[in-house]
Write a protein that binds this DNA or RNA. Structure first.
Lengths: 291, 291
DNA sequence: CATGATCGTTGACTTAGGTCAACCAATTCC
DNA sequence: GGAATTGGTTGACCTAAGTCAACGATCATG
């Protein structure tokens, strides 16, 4: 559309605030003020530490104290002193509290499911939501170390493999490639980093330890989050991890069918080198000396 | 992504509520309570009729009455009795009020512009926002008659022509086609209908009057709003308009490169007929008898 | 062990926002 | 022309939510 972009964004804002005034007002519909519902939700989402909850909700301590007291009176929450520091408190959900949280989630999930069900192209809708959400939250993406065999990592890797299969003329079969041993990508040999936006994985990179050099493997960014600087952040974090592990030489292999990757390495201090392995897929090789 | 769709929608909701808690809180930042800012905005957006404003904001009449009084005291609004019905009132923005609305808009537009500026693919972001907004507001799309020479219509038509140019192997040049005279698509000969979602045009259709038969022309639906049933609603509205104009025979031409259009006509009571004009572009022709 | 900082609690207060009923004035209906 | 209806105003009242200051209880530090 050639319409005024600002007008389109305004319409988007009105649409989502009108609707998430319904989606989020799953927070209503259970006869409890919004503040209490949010507090309840925060306990199940951010854990039991009262100070953490307060920071997450950005609430005044007097307000949170009263909210917790009200939830306690309802029998949804148990309050106990932190065993390590008796000034601090911990809020734990009772079984009734857990049930209440589940009921809220069900309300909100039903609305989400309805939206998906009535849409002709749910995949396109979800992809669009991912793109918008990523644009809004780029600056709140965390890069965290994660087990390369965990669910999040497996999701990233399977997306990565699927993308290679699409981009390589000859396809991609991971069993033909030098699949790095997961143990080599865990402490103390290496690491596996995931870019997490509000719990959803948007990208990953592996640092595989070795004797003469370490390798960067499996750099991937979700389509919805591309060109937002995530790959650079992932690479920086991987390099930092390598330094703290005492690694001094990094290598990586890639493919000329992935020009954005090649361009990234060329502009971030990597130097082209000759082939250093016999993996059938890569045709471009880089090295970086860590000072 | 193969992740849980519900989790993705949850993330989307959190992202937009956290952010439009910033986008919409352009409503804040001018030292006025949200209610007054919303009222002010509604006057400029929905016109001066107090009852209309109340319906649009879904406000209690006592609340709106007080809000208007406060805005009047600030010198932003003038209240006057409706000349046609002295029980009703009208709220008009003073120059100061207009300036205040402009200031709010500028705040919100700046945030939108920032979002666009820092995004690597603004077109993709806008398209995604359109898709999401359309999915959320399908049931609030109005079909309204509109001047085929107006801005909204011109936007729809240029998108329509651009789409034909993409879809036809030989391209599309409107000057080679039988471009319907705009007058034939206005009352009392015919009509031109636009599907409007919160002011943004998502589709159109023209009803072109004639002596022996009327023609359906220029049926178009925006990519972001396809397969949501809009084309059927547009066609139904065009047919209804034809009936009230006393038209008994409808014809249309289309192209086999537009299979979804052909399918629509085949399933909504149209019958294939032979070519009835010498336009170079169409190769499929339909007719419908209105009883 | 004394001092100061930290954490949560409590009471007093404020603001935004909304409900409800009574009311007046204008209009519509019979 | 009188009765009923409608649109807006006003006062009394309520809840959610947040601010502020004072205050124990606890912990960290010199």
């Amino acid at each position: 559309m050639s319409l005024d972009p600002i007008a389109r964004i305004r319409r988007f804002n009105r649409a989502v605030t009108a609707q998430t005034g319904a989606l989020d007002h799953s927070f209503l519909g259970r006869g409890r003020p919004l503040g209490l519902a949010r507090t309840l939700h925060a306990i199940s989402h951010f854990g039991q530490d009262v100070a953490t909850i307060r920071a997450a909700l950005d609430l005044d301590k007097a307000v949170l104290s009263r909210n917790l007291k009200a939830l306690q009176a309802e029998g949804l929450v148990e309050l106990a002193a932190d065993p390590a520091d008796a000034r601090r408190k911990q809020a734990r959900l009772t079984p009734a509290g857990l049930a209440e949280v589940a009921a809220y989630d069900a309300l909100s999930d039903d609305q989400a499911q309805t939206l998906l069900n009535r849409h002709p192209r749910p995949d396109a809708l979800l992809a669009a939501m991912d793109l918008v959400a990523s644009a809004l939250t780029v600056d709140r993406v965390d890069i965290v170390a994660h087990d390369p065999r965990g669910d999040l990592a497996r999701h990233c890797l399977s997306e990565y493999y699927a993308e290679l299969a699409r981009r390589f003329d000859q396809g991609f079969d991971v069993t033909l490639s030098r699949d790095p041993d997961a143990a080599a990508m865990t402490h103390p040999h290496g690491t596996f980093l995931i870019a997490l936006s509000d719990g959803l994985p948007l990208g990953c990179v592996g640092l595989k330890g070795g004797t003469d050099y370490a390798e960067i493997k499996r750099l991937w960014v979700a389509p919805a989050a591309r060109r937002l600087g995530l790959s650079r952040r992932l690479m920086d974090a991987a390099e930092a991890a390598a330094r703290t592990l005492g690694i001094t030489l990094l290598r990586l292999d890639t493919n000329s069918a992935l020009p954005e990757a090649v361009a990234l390495y060329q502009t971030t201090g990597w130097t082209r080198i000759n082939r250093y392995n016999d993996d059938p897929y890569p045709d471009v090789f880089f090295e970086k000396q860590l000072k």
